[in-house]
Design a binder for these strands. Structure first.
Length: 281
DNA sequence: TGCCAGGCTTCAC
DNA sequence: GTGAAGCATGGC
């Protein structure tokens, strides 16, 4: 167990932000994160202090990068025009949001599964996949399952993974696994490639289109400028920005901007504003 | 019970 | 190249 003081960091907002599906709130306000075959419990203690159930080495080598703790998000506030009331409200509402640096294979499968599913349904499907095909591990007295490897999934058929509520996406998951297991897709190479080339490579996989490719770039491949446009983002661009979002203002930071918008757009707070007919613009 | 969900592929045209 | 149809299943 270690204690850290961290500014601009919110476990609850990250957990509820729809970018990761194996971070869950436990009783007592502790969050359980399973990633990179590790199990972590994290808790906000107040005054920007947090506890983490890991060693100093794991915090330095795994979780600092995972939570993107080296990045300074404050610069974003200097980029937003004072009359963009929607984005200013979204950034205030999402204070403490981070873009996680997750395992790209897990991100790939999770967001293939995500298409036309609700976030709770995605979580259920991902967890079922892990329980059935991951490796059972223990952390102290806790049992958990790792995310199954591409090599393992590649050896399964669509009917094998039919127990995971994937629906028509089962064939997409097996196709992706075979691509990665064969070495057609090498994540390390994609991290070093530019965003355009990496996205093009991802989109060659059956079942990965523009939106899922952008999610993989942003959450799995450290491409901070990727801008996934799902139904929520498109709706906001239509209603708050007259169909055109000023991306050029946020060059290099579009990923976190997108995440603030997504998180706020789905919130009760904003839904109430919409219901009352009081858009920000 | 019915509707909707962090979209994609396929097929007309 | 563009637009519409079809898709499996869980959660609310």
């Amino acid at each position: 167990m270690i204690i850290r003081e961290i500014q601009n960091f919110s476990l609850s907002r990250i957990a509820d932000s729809g970018q990761c599906f194996r971070m869950n709130r436990l009783d007592g306000g502790t969050y359980r994160i399973i990633a990179f075959e590790k199990y972590l419990e994290a808790k906000e203690l107040g005054d920007s202090r947090f506890s983490f159930s890991c060693t100093e080495d794991d915090f330095q080598n795994i979780w600092t990068e995972y939570f993107d703790l080296s990045a300074d998000y404050r610069i974003l506030h200097t980029l937003v025009p004072p009359d963009d009331h929607f984005l200013l409200a979204a950034m205030a509402y999402g204070h403490g949001m981070r873009i996680l640096n997750q395992d790209p294979w897990e991100v790939m499968v999770s967001f293939i599964i995500s298409q036309r599913k609700s976030i709770p349904a995605i979580k259920t499907a991902v967890e079922t996949l892990c329980t059935n095909f991951g490796t059972q591990m223990t952390f102290k007295d806790k049992t958990y399952f790792t995310f199954p490897s591409a090599g393992y999934i590649a050896g399964l058929s669509c009917s094998d993974i039919g127990c995971c509520s994937l629906g028509y996406r089962d064939k997409y998951v097996t196709a992706a696994a075979q691509n990665v297991a064969r070495g057609d897709i090498i994540f390390k190479d994609l991290m070093e490639a530019d965003e355009v080339a990496a996205k093009a490579a991802l989109k060659t996989i059956y079942g990965i289109g523009e939106k899922v490719a952008n999610c993989i770039l942003l959450f799995g491949l450290h491409k901070a400028n990727a801008f996934p446009e799902d139904t929520w983002i498109k709706r906001i661009i239509d209603t708050e920005y007259a169909g055109e979002f000023p991306k050029s203002l946020y060059e290099g930071h579009l990923g976190i901007i997108q995440q603030y918008i997504f998180y706020y757009a789905r919130s009760r707070e904003y839904q109430d504003i919409v219901a009352a007919g009081r858009l920000h613009t």
